[in-house]
């Protein structure tokens, strides 16, 4: 029996076969959507490029060469040089590490916390639930960027503060989502059955409720990526994220913006990078939603 036949079997013999069969079918459905595949390819490519930045970079991203400043794109400097003669291509690569690293850090902080808070609140109900929902209400009552600005103002501008500030503003939607999903399954028969066998509350939430939320969480995270990227870049642009000598896409645009009229490549190259990665995540998220979360269409 080929792997494909095993995966597509209508009568899976084991749990594992059923799970992988479903995943494979999801993948097949996603593959039929050219835009989603394009998004996936761009995301993977840009992540790989950021990871391999030291290999792909042609110059040291911090190396200044004032004799060679604001040069147009050429064979030696593929994307030209900036106001200090630094190579824009290398800086964009290393900037990708910083920008994408910040975004990954935010998601790694926010998704588990929001998920667990939401699931616990939804499963426990009562005053715990009510208090948590009030707290998310308060956080959702600020536009994300403005709340993040205020948080950064309270700390010191920098990469860590930006990550913490964005994380603080980004968790409530995840908690809401997990709570809504939990409310849907909490009275299901299978939960009652698990409870009858004597499973503890923690076990029920971790093993039987949380996995049900994962599908919509993945969709939500992918669609949210673009907004997190734009917020991170916006903070950098306003001078509150990564600080100047560091190469971060938003910061690069902020320092290069006065050259927009003559040496457009200085601010536009990182701008296009932000646009591409954020569009790719949106395309991918849109495709994933159709596959993983058909009820939200």
């Amino acid at each position: 029996m080929t792997t494909r036949a095993w995966l597509l079997s209508d009568t899976p013999a084991s749990r594992r076969q059923a799970v992988w069969g479903r995943r494979y079918q999801g993948w097949l459905a996603l593959k039929r959507n050219p835009l989603a595949v394009a998004g996936l390819v761009i995301v993977l490519l840009m992540l790989a490029m950021a990871a391999a930045a030291p290999i792909l970079a042609t110059h040291d991203p911090g190396a200044q060469n004032l004799a060679n400043r604001l040069q147009p794109p050429s064979a030696a400097h593929w994307f030209g040089t900036d106001e200090l003669g630094r190579d824009v291509w290398s800086r964009v690569l290393f900037g990708g590490r910083l920008t994408l690293g910040m975004v990954v850090a935010v998601v790694a902080l926010v998704a588990p916390i929001g998920l667990i808070l939401g699931a616990v609140a939804g499963y426990a109900g009562g005053w715990l639930d009510r208090v948590l929902m009030r707290v998310t209400d308060v956080f959702l009552a600020f536009p994300r960027l403005i709340l993040a600005l205020a948080f950064v103002a309270a700390m010191k501008p920098g990469v860590e503060s930006a990550v913490i500030a964005i994380a603080l503003t980004a968790w409530p939607p995840y908690a809401r989502l997990a709570r809504a999903e939990t409310l849907m399954v909490r009275n299901a028969d299978y939960i009652a059955a698990v409870r009858l066998t004597g499973a503890s509350g923690a076990r029920i939430v971790l093993r039987h409720v949380l996995p049900m939320c994962l599908g919509s969480l993945v969709v939500r995270v992918t669609l949210d990526m673009s907004s997190i990227i734009l917020t991170a870049a916006g903070l950098g642009f306003l001078g509150l994220g990564a600080q100047p000598p560091l190469a971060e896409w938003g910061t690069m645009i902020a320092t290069g913006r006065r050259f927009i009229l003559e040496q457009w490549w200085v601010p536009l190259v990182p701008g296009v990078a932000i646009f591409l990665i954020s569009l790719a995540f949106n395309l991918l998220g849109d495709g994933l939603r159709d596959v993983l979360d058909p009820k939200q269409r």
């Binding site: 734009l230 916006g234 913006r257 701008g271 296009v272 646009f275 954020s278």
Partner: peptide, 22 residues
């Protein structure tokens, strides 16, 4: 729509200044 959702507004503003103003 997806593209409009993905453009950083400050990049668009710079681009617009470059094209329509300059």
């Amino acid at each position: 729509c997806l593209a409009g959702h993905s453009v950083p507004v400050f990049v668009l503003a710079l681009l617009s200044l470059m094209v329509f103003y300059a």
